[in-house]
Amino acid sequence: MNAAPLVAIRGLQKRFGAGPLVLDGINLEVGQGEFVSFIGPSGCGKSTLLRLIAGLTSASDGLITVDGTPPEKAREKMFFVFQDATLMPWRRVAENVELPLLLRGDAPGHRRERVARMLEVVGLSGAAEKFPWQLSGGMRMRVSIARALTVAPEILLLDEPFGALDEMTRDRLNEDLLAIRSRNSFTGFFVTHSVAEAVFLSSRIVVLGVNPGRVTAVIDVPFPYPRQPELRETPAFLRLLATTAQALRAVRS
């Protein structure tokens, strides 16, 4: 990291109302092109941290900047992928993907072209005219990711996007996400419960503890991109899996 960090977090504290501290003393600098996972037990505030970066909630103390400005002012550089696909049930797949461009006021021709391209990227060109209820959970999540990619965000924030999916679908989507990233480069923030997912995707893993959420470990993941599915079976990968799992266990006890 030689240039200024894309996302900088300093002395961040967060509490809701008069409640207890959810996050405390968070310091983190993330450079362009990184893929950072937040992992930790339930209630450690990892989703809150993601929402803070998105500017969907504000810090109680401390500072977050995205590209040098407060998160609320940097929204056009970011997009958020929610825990469930968060599609509008009354809009067809293509119309769902189109939404961010529509709200931004892009011309119809450009929107159509962009939507078609993004559906191709996530492998759902054939489902453009379907309604969300006609898709499986994994396909819905792909639609959600396609929608996020339409605006070509510099930063993509993903809040446990694959948590509700079965392991095979999840692995597949992990691979696809990396493939997409190799073409549409973005800086990634990823919240997850899964150690394997975190190690496979990330360049860096931030382990958070509970009560209050603090950074207890930062693990660098040295494997170069692009990563192949076979990486999961290599000894180096399994060792890092163990290291991360230990760091996570240390938090729980």
């Binding site: 969907l56 929204r75 997009f79 958020f80 929610f82 968060t86 939404l99 931004r104």
Partner: peptide, 20 residues
């Protein structure tokens, strides 16, 4: 979540009414 999606898109109140 859908409302926050609209926030992330910097949607106006009128857009939120019309599309959501």
């Amino acid at each position: 979540n859908l409302r926050e999606l609209f926030v992330m898109c910097n949607a106006t109140r009128a857009q939120e009414a019309r599309y959501l």
